[in-house]
Simulated scan of single mutants.
Amino acid sequence: MRIRVPATSANLGPGFDSCGVAVSCYLFVEVVKPAITWQVEHSYGDFISSDASNLIVQTALKTAPNLLPHHIKVTSDIPLTRGLGSSSSAIVAGIELANRLGNLELSESDKIKLATEMEGHPDNVAPAICGDLVVASYHNDKTYYLKHYFPDCDLIAFIPNTELATSESRDVLPTQLSYSQAVTASSIANVMVAALMAGNLAVAGKMMEQDQFHEQYRSLFVPHLAKIREISHAQGGFGCYLSGAGPTVIILAPKNKTAQIIPQLKILDKKATIEIFQVDREGVQVF
């Protein structure tokens, strides 16, 4: 059995802790064989555990405490601590591992509920499970979500060669907004979501760049965001936003503009990785 979980790009600007899209970059978990104790084979190095304390196994055991140990092999193209949902993909993989090995027959909504409770918010885990664009809310211990088709475009990811922990990036956020600030921030998010539903990337891109919830506070950690936004504007991109907590920035680009955007990004930082993602429409899959 092999489990595939897509990376995710969350927030989309003003859709803070609520909106996310699955992208074509993947975590794979292969079940090799039963074992006496949990064994997690991977190439991350010593800082990622290889036993029952591994996040994937911990998640599986929270989902199904009586699960028998197995030897599993983990491979991934998702960079760690870059704002592309690496921890969320591990949580979703762990839930699916428990679902299959424990014959739990979890529904999609069951998986999203479990993953959201473990992650704390649904913006990454929901699209990793469902695929495509997901708008979700976690309130009063209940999760509400809607999957929708994300308009076709290239997602150009500028991935710096530096890590940024989500906890560190969250520490700079305000504890509250004024009523008028909250109304403005909410209206921007509402128009952004409506534009995506209508397939209007031009308007969606403009709204993504007017976020009031988090990007301005995190700008200290992502000085490249403003420069990438300038490149996107100059080269015909629809808009760009900080992916998750950063430091990755994603440009939504018409497919005929991608070739002229990428060379400009490479000049900006030769150590950064530039990837062209497509929207993953399927979410978690088992083969």
Rank of each mutant, 00 (worst) to 15 (best):
residue 148 H to M: 13
residue 70 H to L: 04
residue 236 G to P: 07
residue 16 F to A: 12
residue 29 V to L: 13
residue 212 Q to I: 00
residue 90 A to V: 00
residue 249 V to I: 11
residue 88 S to I: 13
residue 50 S to K: 13
residue 239 G to M: 00
residue 125 V to E: 11
residue 114 L to I: 09
residue 142 K to H: 13
residue 228 I to S: 02
residue 252 L to Y: 05
residue 47 F to N: 14
residue 121 H to V: 08
residue 82 R to W: 07
residue 2 R to Q: 15
residue 105 E to D: 14
residue 190 N to G: 06
residue 211 D to E: 07
residue 43 S to D: 14
residue 221 F to A: 00
residue 193 V to N: 06
residue 53 S to Y: 05
residue 228 I to N: 00
residue 277 F to K: 08
residue 189 A to C: 07
residue 26 Y to G: 05
residue 179 Y to P: 08
residue 14 P to G: 02
residue 73 K to H: 13
residue 207 M to H: 01
residue 172 V to F: 09
residue 260 Q to S: 15
residue 207 M to N: 01
residue 119 E to F: 06
residue 250 I to E: 09
residue 108 E to S: 10
residue 258 T to S: 14
residue 180 S to A: 14
residue 53 S to C: 06
residue 14 P to V: 08
residue 9 S to A: 15
residue 108 E to H: 10
residue 247 P to L: 05
residue 210 Q to F: 00
residue 93 A to H: 09
residue 235 Q to V: 14
residue 259 A to W: 06
residue 269 D to G: 05
residue 203 V to T: 13
residue 272 A to Y: 08
residue 183 V to F: 06
residue 105 E to P: 01
residue 74 V to S: 04
residue 72 I to N: 02
residue 265 L to R: 07
residue 102 G to S: 03
residue 281 R to Q: 15
residue 259 A to Q: 15
residue 174 P to K: 08
residue 258 T to D: 10
residue 39 Q to V: 15
residue 253 A to R: 05
residue 218 R to T: 07
residue 157 A to G: 13
residue 68 L to C: 09
residue 7 A to P: 06
residue 118 M to W: 08
residue 257 K to I: 12
residue 117 E to K: 11
residue 18 S to Y: 13
residue 132 D to N: 08
residue 202 A to P: 02
residue 181 Q to Y: 07
residue 194 A to F: 11
residue 199 G to W: 05
residue 226 A to P: 03
residue 197 M to N: 14
residue 95 I to P: 00
residue 229 R to Q: 15
residue 256 N to T: 14
residue 108 E to A: 11
residue 72 I to Y: 04
residue 249 V to F: 12
residue 72 I to C: 07
residue 59 T to P: 05
residue 165 A to M: 12
residue 224 H to I: 05
residue 166 T to E: 01
residue 69 P to G: 09
residue 9 S to D: 03
residue 2 R to H: 13
residue 191 V to S: 10
residue 86 S to M: 05
residue 126 A to F: 11
residue 174 P to W: 01
residue 268 L to S: 14
residue 69 P to R: 03
residue 21 V to P: 09
residue 15 G to N: 07
residue 188 I to A: 06
residue 55 L to V: 10
residue 170 R to E: 01
residue 21 V to K: 12
residue 73 K to D: 11
residue 207 M to E: 13
residue 6 P to C: 07
residue 38 W to K: 04
residue 260 Q to T: 15
residue 255 K to L: 09
residue 104 L to D: 03
residue 79 P to V: 10
residue 152 D to C: 07
residue 152 D to M: 03
residue 250 I to G: 07
residue 159 I to R: 10
residue 284 V to P: 03
residue 157 A to R: 12
residue 112 I to S: 13
residue 198 A to G: 11
residue 38 W to C: 08
residue 276 I to P: 13
residue 55 L to T: 13
residue 109 S to H: 14
residue 221 F to D: 01
residue 125 V to N: 09
residue 50 S to N: 15
residue 112 I to R: 10
residue 169 S to K: 02
residue 242 L to V: 11
residue 137 S to M: 13
residue 13 G to N: 03
residue 141 D to S: 08
residue 121 H to P: 10
residue 225 L to K: 05
residue 126 A to H: 14
residue 78 I to E: 06
residue 62 K to M: 15
residue 90 A to H: 00
residue 223 P to N: 02
residue 240 C to G: 04
residue 213 F to M: 03
residue 241 Y to D: 05
residue 255 K to V: 07
